[in-house]
Simulated assay, not measured.
Amino acid sequence: MEHFGRSWAALRTAVGALADGDFRAPSGCAGWLVRDLVCHLVIDAQDVLITLATPSPEEPTRDAATYWEVTGRPPDGQDPLDALTVRLAAAYGDPALLLHHLDDLGSAAGRAAELADPRQPVETRGQVLTTADFLDAYVLEWTLHHLDLGAHLPHLPAPPAEGLARTRHLLERIAAQPFPAALPDADALLVGTGRRAPTDAERTALGPLAARLPFVLG
């Protein structure tokens, strides 16, 4: 639960450090500008609020790792939902309006997570998982998108080390195999999720795991 709050706070702090011109920079998400990614974070905050307000009497069917649907196809920005996000982001016009909306929903999502019972099952995407597992899954979401936010804006603060380590651990659970210890957490996440191609040295270190990359999460 604490990892969720810290990762979310760090990501919102990084968004708050954006200058107006930064919103037009490319992000680490294919086909999305930084503006589009921030709009996606608004939608993510809505998802957190909706899910935490949707308790379930059923037993969990997923955990933080199996919550994710895994494919080997990196996004190309052409998915209808991705395209909708771009149109929604453009509709804001002034970045200040987008930031205001994220601040309102983001603060509420953070407070709701703090107040939630970690053992309570919740329903989302037709599946049931405990609140703790749902929020743990979102640590991965926040951390990867924090990396996406700063992909072309190196002046932004990086994700917290504990969030990177937690996300790596979850990705290794999804992969059912550890990444090489010599590969730093951020690089393991970028390479592992297809955000960049591995270097020759990294591919050698990855060994047979390299042939299974990328793990594209949705």
Rank of each mutant, 00 (worst) to 15 (best):
residue 108 A to R: 15
residue 110 G to K: 00
residue 112 A to I: 02
residue 113 A to E: 02
residue 113 A to D: 04
residue 116 A to Q: 02
residue 116 A to Y: 00
residue 117 D to M: 03
residue 117 D to K: 00
residue 118 P to I: 01
residue 118 P to A: 07
residue 119 R to E: 14
residue 119 R to K: 12
residue 121 P to Q: 03
residue 122 V to L: 05
residue 123 E to H: 12
residue 123 E to W: 00
residue 123 E to T: 15
residue 125 R to Q: 13
residue 125 R to M: 10
residue 125 R to F: 14
residue 125 R to G: 09
residue 126 G to K: 02
residue 129 L to E: 03
residue 130 T to C: 01
residue 130 T to G: 14
residue 131 T to Q: 03
residue 131 T to V: 14
residue 133 D to A: 13
residue 133 D to P: 02
residue 133 D to K: 04
residue 133 D to V: 05
residue 134 F to I: 08
residue 134 F to T: 03
residue 134 F to P: 04
residue 134 F to L: 13
residue 137 A to L: 09
residue 137 A to F: 03
residue 139 V to Y: 07
residue 140 L to W: 11
residue 141 E to M: 02
residue 141 E to I: 07
residue 145 H to D: 06
residue 145 H to C: 06
residue 146 H to I: 08
residue 147 L to R: 09
residue 150 G to T: 07
residue 151 A to M: 12
residue 152 H to T: 14
residue 154 P to R: 08
residue 155 H to E: 15
residue 155 H to D: 15
residue 155 H to G: 15
residue 156 L to M: 10
residue 156 L to P: 06
residue 156 L to Q: 06
residue 157 P to G: 10
residue 157 P to C: 06
residue 158 A to I: 01
residue 158 A to N: 00
residue 159 P to H: 07
residue 159 P to R: 05
residue 159 P to G: 10
residue 161 A to Q: 15
residue 162 E to A: 14
residue 164 L to I: 11
residue 165 A to K: 11
residue 165 A to G: 12
residue 165 A to H: 11
residue 166 R to Y: 07
residue 167 T to Y: 06
residue 168 R to E: 02
residue 168 R to S: 05
residue 168 R to V: 15
residue 170 L to T: 12
residue 171 L to S: 06
